[in-house]
Amino acid sequence: MSTPDIIDTLAGIKPGSALDAIRTKRLQARENAQKSYLSLFEPIDAGDVSLLERAAVAAFVTGLHGETPVASFYRDKLAATADGPRLVEAIELEIARGKTSGPYGSFPAGPLSVENTAGLIFRVSAERKSALGARLVAALEHAHLLVFRPRDAASDDMQALLAAGWSNTGIVTFSQLVAFLSFQVRVVSGLRTLAAVNASEEAAS
């Protein structure tokens, strides 16, 4: 059984609707987004990043963006993953601690330095480190960095992942996952906004 188009599902797009027609006009982009989801969250071989880790990072990243259908989807996905239910509460608590607004951080010395902005440097709370484990602790901290202060990313941050047991291949997969989630959240948000506008215009006509 094939997996339904995830963006259509999260955006509430019905076959034959105006938004369905819009997405159909960019069929390759639609198909590529679905392939990205499947390769990251339903891989034939999870390799160096377990399905549990993928779901936990996804729940955290999308949760940082706010309570949306996307965040709910990945929270439920984590809860449905083997050994996932025990992590849901810990992830939710860390989301609450990590929520902020961005981007922020510091640019290298130069003209852009005037745009330097201070902000939260997220670290997982000591009381939840044992429940999450070293790999997820490092992953959540790095994910927060990528979401809110990517300009601060440095080699030391990569070393922290390696020291926690992440392989180079795993780090690449992890980075792709965070990038895809940021894309997905924005696309779904935009499509749902368009749907609301269309519904409002139809009601007014």
Results as ranks from 00 to 15, higher is better:
residue 21 A to H: 14
residue 40 L to H: 09
residue 12 G to S: 12
residue 75 R to M: 04
residue 110 G to E: 09
residue 97 R to D: 11
residue 194 L to R: 13
residue 89 E to I: 04
residue 102 G to N: 07
residue 118 A to K: 14
residue 3 T to Q: 15
residue 200 S to P: 11
residue 197 V to H: 14
residue 179 A to T: 10
residue 170 G to V: 01
residue 55 A to C: 09
residue 194 L to E: 15
residue 86 R to D: 08
residue 84 G to R: 12
residue 7 I to D: 03
residue 147 V to D: 04
residue 180 F to W: 10
residue 197 V to I: 15
residue 137 V to A: 00
residue 28 Q to E: 15
residue 45 D to M: 10
residue 140 L to Y: 02
residue 99 K to T: 10
residue 34 Q to R: 15
residue 11 A to P: 14
residue 168 N to Q: 13
residue 101 S to Q: 11
residue 88 V to I: 04
residue 82 A to N: 10
residue 73 F to C: 07
residue 32 N to F: 06
residue 172 V to R: 06
residue 142 H to T: 09
residue 47 G to E: 09
residue 18 A to P: 14
residue 85 P to Y: 03
residue 176 Q to L: 09
residue 11 A to R: 08
residue 108 P to I: 01
residue 41 F to E: 07
residue 178 V to H: 02
residue 188 V to S: 08
residue 173 T to V: 10
residue 84 G to S: 05
residue 145 L to S: 03
residue 164 A to P: 09
residue 157 D to I: 03
residue 14 K to G: 09
residue 163 A to W: 01
residue 20 D to G: 14
residue 59 A to R: 06
residue 138 A to F: 00
residue 67 E to Q: 12
residue 187 V to G: 08
residue 111 P to E: 10
residue 27 L to I: 07
residue 151 R to C: 02
residue 115 E to N: 09
residue 153 A to S: 06
residue 185 V to R: 02
residue 132 L to G: 00
residue 92 E to L: 06
residue 95 I to D: 04
residue 26 R to K: 13
residue 139 A to Y: 01
residue 54 R to H: 10
residue 102 G to R: 04
residue 180 F to E: 07
residue 143 A to V: 03
residue 187 V to M: 10
residue 80 A to T: 09
residue 196 A to L: 11
residue 137 V to S: 00
residue 189 S to V: 08
residue 31 E to C: 09
residue 197 V to F: 11
residue 52 L to S: 08
residue 69 P to V: 13
residue 183 F to H: 11
residue 112 L to S: 05
residue 196 A to Q: 14
residue 201 E to H: 15
residue 57 V to R: 06
residue 96 A to R: 12
residue 125 S to T: 09
residue 37 Y to M: 08
residue 196 A to T: 15
residue 200 S to G: 13
residue 195 A to W: 07
residue 90 A to Y: 01
residue 160 A to N: 05
residue 176 Q to T: 06
residue 133 G to W: 00
residue 88 V to Y: 04
residue 178 V to F: 01
residue 172 V to F: 12
residue 118 A to V: 12
